[in-house]
Design a protein around this nucleic acid. Sequence first.
DNA 1: AATACGGGGTG
DNA 2: CACCCAGTATT
Length: 346
Amino acid sequence: MNFSEKIIDWYLKNKRELPWRETKDPYAIWLSEIILQQTRVVQGLDYYCRFLEAFPTIFDLAKATEEEVLKLWQGLGYYSRARNMHAAAREIVTTYGGMFPDNYSAIRSLKGVGDYTAAAISSFAFGLPYPVMDGNVIRVIARYFGIVAYCDKAEGKSQIKKALNAVFDIKHPAEFNQAIMEFGALQCIPVNPSCSTCILKENCVAFEKAMVKELPVKSSKTIIKPRYFHYLIIHDGDEIIIKQRGAGDIWQGLYEFPLIETSSETTPDEVMKHPDWKYLKGKHSWNILKIQSGVRHILSHRILHVTFYEIAGKIYRLPFGAKKIKKDNLQDYAVPVLIEKYLKQN
DNA sequence: AATACGGGGTG
DNA sequence: CACCCAGTATT
């Protein structure tokens, strides 16, 4: 058996049952692929089901507001995926009359669809011969061929792509793509793969050279920088102030409380002297109900040091983009997990 | 070519 | 704590 036959044979015996593998609907497949970008299957599964239930067709998704889509996406992260997906749905409805594009280049030009996702949809929904190259595939190929170049740089990617093309099964693109990704996810895993039981070990260069642990090689380590957030939860009777986050920063489109950000660790006394605090408070008198400091929230490249200030009082002037809503309606707004966790505990 | 962009699981 | 996940867009 060649590489493709082995890996497809392994796949048929070991694959997980996943809902997006039971459909040929390009809309559902596209939905699953966007959700699964940089996201584990187990984490995306519930979201996939909820999205398909809320928006069974692309017309339903296109009709929804961006805020509805973001609310359903809440907790998944990388929120540009949701915004781009929503924009793409509207584009497909207006430009293609709701018919999902059926060729690689049209699919690739959709918002939020890159090389990986275009190949995935092309092969899974339309049977077109495009190999996918995701994190799983990179790992499997880098090990099997013993590719030592940095896989997160152009040279390494090019080598992997070349090797992948050499083993790609042009006659069974969908099955091959599913198989190699599943193989990477279940067998050829990042840490402590079970090489002794591997069906590819006879021809695996990394196994032969005892380099499995070193491959694939990645260059850049993300530096995690701190940010200091101070949230003002301003209670005005049964109402509360929230504000939507704008472009060019984390959590675009999500809601949060009025935020004062400082460039370093700052005590509550100092925060209360901050120009933004004074601007929000104006001439009103505020009753500080509670201060919860020391909350940490980790993002992929940031660590947030957060303090929450519970305040009873009126806001002097609503900042741009802020609004006053009934506390009971807060649940209708998409908020970052950081905010959601705080609300649940308080 | 490098960086921004979430959140959670795993050893 | 470090690494990684069915990556893409922007600079």
